[in-house]
């Protein structure tokens, strides 16, 4: 399977509060809240690091989980965030302009 690259949308304001990320979408005034594992993925979404590498180096290093399970959950999360318009998901590195 090809790698996925993820990048945060520029149309959001995000702040970390108590280990959880609060994200406000300027597009439709929706407030999102990510739990601790989702926050790690969000913070690593630089558009250049493949998702499987983020999972292996960040999620599995910090949380007690097997890479296969973590990757499956991460893919599900990023697709959901993409659907909300706050994360870009691509099969090639995302160039931030």
């Amino acid at each position: 399977m090809s790698s996925l690259y993820i990048a945060r949308s520029r149309q959001v304001a995000a702040r970390e509060l108590g280990g959880e990320m609060m994200i406000m979408s300027a597009r439709d005034s929706t407030l999102f809240s990510l739990n601790d594992v989702a926050t790690v993925i969000w913070q690593a979404a630089d558009g250049q690091t493949p998702l499987d590498e983020i999972v292996e180096r960040r999620v599995c290093a910090e949380f007690d989980v097997e890479p296969a399970e973590a990757l499956k959950d991460a893919e599900s999360l990023v697709r959901e965030l993409e659907g909300h318009g706050i994360l870009m998901v691509s099969e090639t590195p995302v160039v931030s302009g």
Binding site: L31, S33, V37, E62, D64
Partner: peptide
């Protein structure tokens, strides 16, 4: 040792106004 308990990553959301 040293790793936190894993929770499935999740997002909650609410339309503010």
């Amino acid at each position: 040792k040293g790793r936190k308990p894993y929770r499935k990553p999740e997002v909650r959301y609410e339309k503010v106004f």
